[in-house]
Write a protein that binds this DNA or RNA. Structure first.
Length: 498
RNA sequence: GGUCGAGUGGCCGAGCGGCUAGGCAGAGGUCUGCAAAACCUCGUACAGCGGUUCAAAUCCGCUCUCGACCUCCA
C-alpha cells in the first residue's frame, strides 16, 4: 500500500490509490488517431501518463500499460482530396488506409521515442480487434441496451440512464442532453439524440469496411477502447487516462458500454490531463493553430521563434501540474530550456562529485534542509503527481550542489548519508521518474577528444603566457564550430558540444 | 444557451485557512585577463467588491474577464 493519492475525475476528489491486484497495476490510456501527424497537444497526455507509468514502477508495481492506436473509422488524410479514395481510380492512385495509418503510426512512435516515453506494454490497434468489438456489441444487444437500425447499431442511453448514473463522469445531465438542438449525422435513425453508435453502416464510398452481423460497416469510435481494455486488463482495471476533451462523450460512453457488457463499472480511477493552449485557445484542428511535432523540433512554423528540443518540451510540460492548462509561448519554452540546462548540469555535477570530510554533517541545519527537499519530492509525487513541485525542489538543491563545486559550501556540511540522498534524488527523479535525458548525447570520438585536448593544452599555455589573443581565438573559433569551452575554477578547461 | 473550470509579481507557473514555492527576465554584487557559467542579494504578487474567521491568495456570496465541454479532438 502506497501513499500515492490521485485525483479521480469520476469522484472529483483525490483518493488514495489502491490496486485491484496487489503489486500490479492495469493502466489504459487513449492513444492517437493516426490519420495525421502528431502535434504538441498529443505530447501532453503521453508524457503525463509516461510519468504515471514510471512512478508506479518506481513504487514497485508491475504495470501493464495499454495504449491503443485508433486506425479505424472515418479516414481522410489532411489536405488530401476527397476524390483520392474514389474506387474508379487505379489502385495505386487511391489512398490506401493501411499505408496512411502506417505512415502516421511510425511518425507517432518517432515522436514518443524522442520524448523518451517508455513503450506501452501493449499497443493494440482498433482494426486488429474488430472481432472483439463485434462480440461486445452483440453482448450489449443481447442484454437489451442496443438496437439495430438499417445496418447500424446504437446504444440506448435513455434506457441505460434509468438504472445507471449516465453523465456522472462528465457532469452531464441527461435531460439537458436530450434538449440539444444540434443536428448530427444519423440522428433520424436513433431513438434519442443522446444515443451513440456502436457500429456504423458503411456508405458506398467508405473505404474502411468489415463484415458484421449487421452488414458491412465499421465500429463506432468508443467501442474499441472498451473492447481492448477489457481484453488486456480485465473487466475491471485500475487506471484509465486520457485528455480532458475525451471525458465526454468518449469516456462516458465507454463506462456505459462496459457497465452493460460486464455488469459493473470498468475503471477504478479516471485520470484526465488538461489541454495545451496557444494564446489562450485550445490547440486543435478546428482552431487552425496546430503545431506539429516535426515543426516543433525543427522550428519550422510561423509562430515558432526557434526549434525546441524534445527534452525541453518535456521539461516544460512537467513544470506544470497535469490538471492545469498549459499555455504555449516562445518565452515559456525558452525559459524552460535555460532552466533545464542549469538543472541538468547540477545533476551531472553531483553525480561526479566526491564528498569531503567525515560521515557526520558539520551543518545540521543545512543537512535537515537538504533532506527536507529530497523527502518532499516523494510527498509531491504522491500528491497527485505534482511534478512541478518536484522540479522546484530539485531547483532548491541545485545552488547547494553548485556551492559544493565552487567551494563556498563545504560538502562535509551535510552528512555522507544526505549527500548520497541528494545524488539518488537527482538520479531517480530527473532520469527515472520524470524521464529526462541530456540535451546532447556525448560524442564519444577518440579522435575528436584528442584534437580538443590538444587545443585546450595550447590555450592553457597561451593563458599562462598572457597571450590572450591566442587563447581567445581558440575559444571563439571553437565556439563558432559549436564547441563551447569553459574555464573551471580549478584552472582546468572543459568543453560541451552543441 | 446549458454544464464545469480558471483568474497569482514583467512572463511562466506551485500553493488552496497561519509556515521562503520554483523557474525565466531585470537590477546590484562576488569570482574571472576577458567571456560564459556559477554563487549571493533585491522585487514582495494573489481580478474586483462584500462576508465568515483571532487569521484568507486559500472558505462563502456577488460582479467582471477568460477558457473547456456540449461535434471529430490529447
Amino acid at each position: 500500500m502506497s501513499d500515492l493519492h490521485i485525483y479521480n475525475s469520476y469522484t472529483r476528489q483525490k483518493e488514495q490509490f489502491q490496486s485491484i491486484t496487489p503489486g500490479h497495476v492495469g493502466l489504459y490510456v487513449c492513444g492517437p488517431t493516426v490519420s495525421g501527424e502528431s502535434h504538441l497537444g498529443h505530447a501532453r497526455p503521453y508524457i503525463t501518463f509516461d510519468v504515471v507509468n514510471r512512478y508506479l514502477q518506481h513504487l514497485g508495481y508491475k504495470v501493464r500499460y495499454v495504449r491503443n492506436i485508433t486506425d479505424a473509422g472515418h479516414f481522410e488524410e489532411e489536405g488530401r482530396e476527397a476524390e483520392d479514395k474514389v474506387a474508379t481510380k487505379a489502385q495505386l492512385e487511391r489512398m490506401e488506409p493501411m499505408e496512411l495509418v502506417h505512415k502516421y503510426t511510425n511518425l507517432f512512435h518517432w515522436g514518443m521515442r524522442l520524448f523518451n516515453n517508455l513503450d506501452p506494454s501493449i499497443e493494440p490497434t482498433a482494426t486488429g480487434h474488430i472481432i472483439e468489438q463485434i462480440d461486445m456489441i452483440e453482448n450489449i444487444i443481447a442484454k437489451g441496451y442496443a438496437y439495430e437500425v438499417n445496418g447500424s447499431v446504437y446504444f440506448d442511453v435513455k434506457k441505460y440512464a434509468e438504472k445507471y448514473p449516465y453523465g456522472k463522469l462528465s457532469g452531464r445531465i441527461l435531460e439537458d442532453l436530450l434538449e440539444t438542438t444540434r443536428e448530427l449525422d444519423g440522428q433520424e435513425e436513433k431513438r434519442n439524440k443522446v444515443d451513440f453508435a456502436l457500429w456504423k453502416k458503411a456508405p458506398a464510398e467508405h473505404i474502411m469496411r468489415w463484415n458484421s452481423p449487421w452488414g458491412e460497416g465499421f465500429p463506432g469510435w468508443h467501442i474499441e477502447c472498451s473492447a481492448m481494455s477489457s481484453k488486456y486488463l480485465g473487466d475491471k482495471f485500475d487506471i484509465h487516462g486520457g485528455g480532458m476533451d475525451l471525458q465526454f462523450p468518449h469516456h462516458e460512453s465507454e463506462i456505459a458500454q462496459s457497465t452493460i457488457a460486464h455488469d459493473h463499472a470498468p475503471v477504478n480511477y479516471w485520470m484526465h490531463n488538461n489541454m495545451i493552449t496557444i494564446n489562450g485557445k485550445k490547440m486543435g484542428k478546428s482552431y487552425n493553430n496546430v503545431i506539429k511535432l516535426t515543426e516543433l523540433f525543427s522550428g519550422n512554423h510561423p509562430i515558432l521563434e526557434q526549434s525546441y528540443h524534445p527534452m525541453v518540451v518535456r521539461f516544460y510540460i512537467l513544470q506544470t501540474h497535469y490538471r492545469s492548462t498549459l499555455d504555449f509561448s516562445n518565452e515559456a519554452l525558452q525559459a524552460s530550456e535555460k532552466a533545464f540546462r542549469r538543472l541538468w548540469e547540477a545533476h551531472e555535477i553531483v553525480q561526479k562529485m566526491q564528498r569531503a570530510g567525515g560521515a557526520e554533517a558539520t551543518d545540521k541545519e543545512l543537512d535537515a534542509k537538504v533532506q527536507g527537499f529530497c523527502r518532499d519530492c516523494d510527498e509531491s509525487m504522491n500528491d497527485d503527481l505534482n511534478t512541478a513541485k518536484v522540479i522546484a525542489n530539485l531547483f532548491e538543491l541545485a545552488p547547494i550542489v553548485n556551492g559544493f563545486k565552487a567551494g563556498h559550501i563545504d560538502s562535509g556540511a551535510i552528512s555522507a548519508e544526505t549527500f548520497e540522498l541528494v545524488q539518488t534524488t537527482f538520479k531517480t527523479y530527473l532520469e527515472d521518474i520524470l524521464g529526462m535525458q541530456a540535451l546532447q548525447v556525448k560524442e564519444s570520438s577518440n579522435k575528436l577528444d584528442q584534437v580538443l585536448s590538444l587545443l585546450i593544452e595550447i590555450r592553457k599555455d597561451a593563458k599562462m603566457r598572457k597571450d590572450f589573443a591566442t587563447s581567445d581565438q581558440i575559444r571563439n573559433k571553437l565556439a563558432e564550430a559549436g564547441v563551447m569551452l569553459k574555464d573551471e575554477k580549478d584552472g582546468s578547461i572543459t568543453y560541451t558540444i552543441e
